[in-house]
């Protein structure tokens, strides 16, 4: 019988130490492991390097002053193009270091780490200012007859990884039921054994996984995961289809609150100062208030 890897959000977050490089799955404002990010906000870690196809995960960690470096291809809320906290952090110069990559380069960096290769070659990024703002990047010459010069995207190893899936069993076998796995398997693959944390909407028995969707949805196996956390609505306010869509109203409220320090501090103290259960309860209350006002 494989191990039972169930744990709590706070137990998972406690494995993350200051100065670590953490990869966060999902894409923009889609199936982000937000409850794990919120758990991280409750710790005193700082100086993190955050690697992400960024959304509110990057924004919240920046707003909380936990970020030393961001590695990203973009940071966006999808239906709202620009992430307000990331934007102000960049414009005020409060993030000490940034690595801005083409989206495909970021995939390659994680894939190289997953395969334990020092780099993977690509054309994506060549000629663009990505090579100017990342002077550490090197090229490699094809050893074959073409002799083409290609960009050597360096492997990006993670100290910790957070992803959120629709279903998992207690051993870490997991399943996505929406239209896209994004690059969650690569975030897990690029990370050292010991700190790969997977939250999910619902923990089910292993034999139930195949009843939820075809075997094609079972892309994450237990060798890729160290901790499993059941966290219903854990992607809120990002989407986790087909379990739920993005909470557009709340996302708009988040963006509005981020516009000035006073309203942000009110938002943070209402929603982000307690436990995950407190957060979910406050969100529900907020929606009831909105309905009452309408």
């Amino acid at each position: 019988m494989a191990r039972d890897k169930r744990m709590t959000l706070d137990e998972a977050a406690a494995h993350v130490k200051s100065g670590m490089t953490i990869g966060i799955g999902g894409w923009g404002s889609r199936r982000k492991p937000m409850s794990l990010v919120r758990a991280l906000l409750r710790t005193d870690v700082k100086d993190l390097t955050v690697v992400s196809y960024g959304g509110p995960d990057v924004g919240l960690l920046c707003a909380a002053g936990k970020v030393k470096k961001v590695v990203y291809g973009f940071v966006s809320l999808d239906s709202i193009a620009l992430e307000p906290h990331f934007r102000s952090a960049r414009q005020s110069g409060s993030i000490a270091e940034c690595v801005e990559y083409d989206e495909g380069m970021l995939q390659w960096a994680l894939y190289a780490a997953s395969l334990r290769l020092p780099f993977l070659p690509t054309r994506a990024g060549l000629g663009s200012d990505v090579t100017v703002v990342n002077p550490q990047l090197r090229t490699v010459t094809s050893p074959y007859a073409d002799g083409e010069e290609l960009l050597a995207v360096p492997s990006l190893e993670l100290d910790a990884a957070f992803v959120h899936l629709n279903r998992a069993d207690m051993h870490g076998n997991a399943q996505f039921l929406g239209p896209d796995l994004y690059f969650d398997d690569l975030f897990l693959g690029a990370c050292d054994t010991g700190r790969r944390f997977l939250s999910c909407e619902k923990i089910v028995t292993s034999d139930e996984l195949l009843k939820n969707g075809s075997f094609h949805t079972m892309k994450i196996n237990r060798s890729m995961v160290d901790g499993v956390i059941e966290s219903p609505n854990g992607s809120h306010f990002t989407h986790c289809t087909p379990d739920y869509e993005r909470d557009e109203k709340f996302q708009s409220a988040y963006v509005k609150a981020a516009a000035d320090p006073e309203s942000w501090s009110a938002f943070a103290s209402r929603f982000l100062s307690g436990s995950e259960a407190d957060y979910q309860a406050e969100v529900k209350k907020w929606h009831d208030e909105q309905k009452a006002q309408a």
Binding site: G54, G73, F86, R87, Q91, E100, M105, A124, G125, D129
Partner: peptide
């Protein structure tokens, strides 16, 4: 330190 942070390069280079 941009005057205005926009999207990031996204997939444009590739």
């Amino acid at each position: 330190q941009p005057k205005a942070q926009l999207l990031g390069v996204r997939g444009a280079p590739g």
